[in-house]
Design a protein around this nucleic acid. Structure first.
Ligand SMILES: [Mn+2]
Ligand SMILES: [Mn+2]
Ligand SMILES: [Zn+2]
Ligand SMILES: [Zn+2]
Lengths: 150, 150
DNA sequence: TGACCGATGCAACCAAGTTGCATAGATTGC
DNA sequence: GCAATCTATGCAACTTGGTTGCATCGGTCA
């Protein structure tokens, strides 16, 4: 699934100035292979199927990845952050959809929405580092099995 | 500061099919008078200056307001939701800016960004109920006193 | 008047994430 | 090669933001 060039995730991690460890490489691989952004809990659950890693290590790996731009922290409509590949990992920015019924989040194509903000950024007194566009609603699965009821 | 027509917040609440109580009216008034979206904690702190209300009541008031469209729940870059006036309270949708340094959130003018998503919404299999646009970065105050260092 | 219903308070609980500290494993200096 | 030095990890305790169960209280209505 995830195509990786020579060296794979370890070298991607090292190219960002971080030490590569088995746990970190696996966390990044899980992120890279996912169609949708994942919670730390989901990442840990996947990881734990093959090796025993503490959840703290997952949290800390994600933190350093986000700091280094390797991963992106995405807010959702619920109380848990999601993580996806970051811009430093050949990943284009794109909006997301959050289903308030089942809690699933999906990546939308980068061109799904057109966002123009250059004029604003130019005149804004603060520093804009990133933008998040998220649509909330009911996903098609939840629509099929039961309507938009809370 | 907050201009209110005859009846004020109590009737605004009742017009949404909810019972108006002193606590609810005050929560809504605090929201209406704020320049920026507030956390439940901030609302409770403000409220507590004039009367003893349990934080649970604040949470529950906000829940029913959001459900009724009187208030809007907004995600930020940190772990706490913010609340602002909702669309059913004569409030236009607009983007927000979140400062990752001081945690302050500010409302941006509705025209700050141009967002085109009709084409997407028309062809999307799910139901899109709302959209959130949030910029993250460093606010001008934090820029002045110390740069963008974390 | 009395049954009812919803809003509130309060305590317990929960989920997500963070922190302190000890250890193990790798890296560096010599 | 060996010791001094990081640093990633594990594990437990803690924090924060929010939710839930349950008892009570105050209106509304037959
Ligand atoms: Mn994505
Ligand atoms: Mn706002
Ligand atoms: Zn769904
Ligand atoms: Zn700031």
């Amino acid at each position: 699934m995830g195509k990786e060039e020579a060296g794979g995730y370890p070298s991607l991690i090292e190219d960002s100035g971080l030490a590569s460890t088995p746990a970190r490489a696996q966390v990044l691989e899980i992120l890279a292979n996912s169609q949708s952004p994942l919670t730390a809990r989901e990442i840990h659950a996947t990881l734990a199927r093959t090796q025993a890693v503490d959840r703290t290590t997952v949290y800390r790996s994600l933190d350093v990845f986000v700091e280094a731009g390797l991963a992106e922290r995405i807010t959702s409509g619920d109380r848990a952050f999601r993580y996806g590949m970051g811009r430093r990992s050949l990943h284009a920015r794109h909006p997301h959809f959050f289903c308030r019924q089942c809690g699933d989040m999906e990546c939308l194509s980068a061109g799904a929405v057109e966002l123009r903000m250059e004029d604003f950024v130019r005149t804004f007194a603060g520093l804009v580092e990133r933008v998040e566009v998220r649509m909330d609603g009911i996903c098609k699965n939840c629509l099929r099995r039961g309507g938009a009821g809370k």
